[in-house]
Each structure stands twice: as C-alpha cells, then as structure tokens.
C-alpha cells in the first residue's frame, strides 16, 4: 500500500510545524525520517495515522484519504507512537488480545496472531506479566507487537529504538527489516547510523520542510564532494613534509592531526584525488608512507550541513 503525502501543512497557533511537504512511499520500501527535534517528524506521522487533523493538504494511504475514509486507513496501519504509551495495568497477553479485537480479528485468528507476535518479538518469558513490570526494552517490544498484531500493510514507527540497549537495538532493527520487505514502513529517528542501517531511503526534514530525499549514498554524494585523506608519513621532518604536501598541485588544504606524530589530513581540490601524488612524493623524497585512509563524507556531516542554517 503506497503512502502519498501532498502539500501537508500543520499549523500550531501561528507557527507551522509542518510546512507544505510532499512525498511518496511505495510498498516494500522502508523510509527513514530524519531531522532534529521539533522538525515536524512526529507531526507528519501523526497526520498519516489520522490522529492529527492537518491544517491543509492531503494524505492518501492506498486509495483512502485521511479526510474521507480515516477508518479504512486505521484498519491498515500499525502504529508505534513516540514514548510508546501502553496500558500498564494490563498483562501482555490481555493487551495484545485487546489490540487484536479492536482491529476486528476473528476470535480464533487472534490467539494465533498473539502466539506469533510473542515469538517474533521475543516476549515468551514475559507474556503473563503486567506491562508495568516490564523493562523498557520489553515494553518497546510489546508496543511493536501491538502495532503488528493485525498484520498491517503500513507500519508507522516513531523512534522505535529509543531507550533500548545496543543488543536490543540490533534485534529490533533486524525485525523491522525482515517485516519491512512486504510492507510500507516509515520510521523516524535522530540516530543517523540507525536510519542508514535500516532504511532504503532517507528523508531529512528541518523546520517543517523536506531538505533532502534519497538513499544514504546519494545524500553523501550531494554534500561537499572533496576527497579527504588521512596519511602518516615517517622518516622525515614534520614541517618539511607539511610544506611538500601543500605544494602538490591537487591538494587544497593540509592540516596536522593533533594527537598523532607525523599525521596529516589532506583535503583535495574539488573533483581531484591526491592519493597518487602523495605516494609518488614519498618515493621521490625517500619517506615511508605508513598509513593512508580515505575518509568518506559521514552522514552526520550531511545532516549537520542540511539542518544547521
């Protein structure tokens, strides 16, 4: 089921939280929603789930519009809200039964689904405990099980791994990736590594507007294209090497790397590579090149560049 967002706007008071954004997500795609806090990620997700009524614009999930068929959309969406609210006073199994019943699953099917959810979310040992007795990681799994109980075509996950330990994060990511193959998934996060590891496509949103849209690689390429290499050159005087490197015709900037002896960061001129020149320089001067590493533009840098203005 595709999700189509067109000219979505949500204004709180006089301030637009989401300002005329449009995008599309296709079946089988996992879209990562990235942005600083308060960028409008959660607002957009709430609008898609029909929880928030937008000030303007249209959202379609499949063929259903949020304005005219919200109930149809709700049937097809699994939603894990930010902060993962749960009925703490209920046992896990009862809660999942309630969620299943509300999603109109027939009685015999509910039990089957609950067993399935408990096994894929790893809740076997906790199923009869009250939700309030669970640790944060297990609560998150209950939230996810709730979102998946009716096998929805669309999954909206608002910061699904917040508050989890590294092992749990990896498990939840694997789970999302596995499930996401046949579904349309939107997940939000402000952890870049997570989005990069889980999502097929990334949407960066800042101050209510989309500032970038593409795969992680595409985004990296779009940011400053200059090659940056780190080198360590031994058997020579630090300052002599520095001057020599600087005089190479492909090199734009050279910098000492603080904590290492004879280590330099070299930034090449746009669209040029200095790697061969550095190597040849060392041979001609009799220096020993002990380290050369190409630093890729990090997604962090792309993100900072796009969201700090």
């Amino acid at each position: 089921m595709n999700i189509l967002v067109e000219h979505l706007t949500k204004i709180y008071g006089t301030q637009p939280a989401v300002d005329d954004i449009s995008f599309e997500v296709r079946t089988g795609e996992i879209l990562g929603f990235l942005g600083p806090n308060g960028a409008g990620k959660t607002t957009t997700m709430k609008a898609i789930t029909t929880f928030l009524e937008p000030s303007g614009g249209e959202i379609k999930v499949g063929d259903f519009s949020i304005h005219t068929q919200p109930q149809e959309i709700r049937k097809n969406i699994g939603y894990l809200p930010e902060n993962n609210p749960l009925y703490n006073e209920m046992p896990v199994v009862d809660y999942l039964y309630f969620a299943g019943a509300m999603h109109e699953l027939p009685k015999d099917k509910i039990n089957e689904r609950i067993i399935h959810m408990i096994s894929i979310c790893g809740l076997e040992g906790e199923k009869h405990k009250k939700i309030s007795e669970l640790s944060k990681g297990y609560k998150q799994r209950v939230g996810l099980a709730q979102a998946l109980i009716h096998d929805p075509a669309v999954l909206i996950l608002d910061e699904p791994t917040s508050g989890l330990d590294p092992n749990q994060i990896i498990e939840i990511r694997d789970l999302i990736r596995r499930i996401g193959k046949k579904k349309t998934v939107i997940l939000s996060s402000h952890i870049l590594a997570e989005v990069e590891a889980t999502c097929d496509r990334i949407l960066i949103i800042n101050k209510g507007k989309i500032v970038a849209d593409g795969t992680a690689d595409e985004l990296r390429k779009k940011s400053k294209g200059n090659e940056i290499i780190n080198v360590t050159i031994e058997d020579g005087d630090k300052n002599t090497i520095f001057e020599a490197l600087k005089s190479l015709e492909t090199v734009g900037l050279v910098d000492f790397i603080d904590h290492k002896e004879n280590a330099f960061e070299i930034q090449s001129l746009p669209e040029l590579s200095s790697r061969r020149n550095v190597f040849n320089l060392c041979i001609s001067r009799g220096w020993v090149l002990t380290e050369m590493k190409v630093t890729e533009a990090k997604l962090e840098d792309v993100f900072r560049e796009l969201t700090i203005s």
């Binding site: 929880f51 809200p81 609210p85 749960l86 109109e104």
Partner: peptide
Amino acid sequence: KTGTLEILLTMPVT
C-alpha cells in the same frame, strides 16, 4: 496523560 488515547484513536474505532 499516558498517551494511550493515541493508540486508541488510531485503531478502527469511532
């Protein structure tokens, strides 16, 4: 307060 209303209001229920 707990936010469970958000879960409830995104289920197919009026």
